[in-house]
Amino acid sequence: MQALATLGRYTLATLNEIGKVFIFSVQGLKNCFVPPFYFREIISQLVIVGFYSLPIVGLTAVFTGMVLALQTSVGFSRFNAAGAVASVVVISITRELGPVMAGLMVAGRGSSSIAAEIGSMRVSEQIDALRTLRVDPFKYLVVPRILAGVTMVPLLVLVADVIGVMGGFLVSTTLLDFSVGSYISQTVQNLAAIDVISGLVKAAVFGFSLTTFGCYHGFCCDLGARGVGNATTRAVVSSCIGILVLNYLLTALFFGI
């Protein structure tokens, strides 16, 4: 009986939280289209979320592509199908690994720092100060970050796609004995617009969700240094889970169930 009650309470709390995040994200989305816009903040967030994530996203992408080429060539050569390596690399990178890997990396880097920054602003009354200066904290803090997520994560994924395919290409042509010409022509043959576009749409959704989670947990942060720490952890965990769940839903949507 006791266990049942605990389970019920836990479920209710979770549902309550999901509802709050949903309301927060709708509010965030709505505010993206309502002036005033703080262009300086938007630009600085574009740089922080986009540009500064480039190295880590590039690094992840190149190693993912390389490992993919190694693994598939080992597996496929058992069935004399080593020629399919190029197609597997390009399809899985553009459809899945590019968006998901980049999304997770930006989630780890971006949503944690968003939650920590907004959380400590809340703790030190800076958010109250914004309100009393008649600046809507939602428009000043949340909107620029969401816009940065929605626009920059797709760009990062585009870069990750290119670098990931390059990684596969490098391993295949240097370590495995693929000829440069045939690898490239195989890659181009299997490169489909729908794969790239679906990946970019995913990326935009991931960007929205990870910045929203970061902002949400920052705003709901308990007072004190420990509150900020907890908010940061929650932001990373929830945005990573969010990305994996959304990825499944979007894949089902794009490519049929």
Binding site: M121, S124, E125, Q126, D128, A129, R131, T132, R134
Partner: peptide, 18 residues
């Protein structure tokens, strides 16, 4: 807006934007 316009506050912890 008009109401809030009348006020200005010095917070306990200063609340300068860092």
């Amino acid at each position: 807006g008009e109401y809030l316009r009348k006020f200005s506050i010095l917070f306990q912890g200063n609340a300068l934007f860092d």
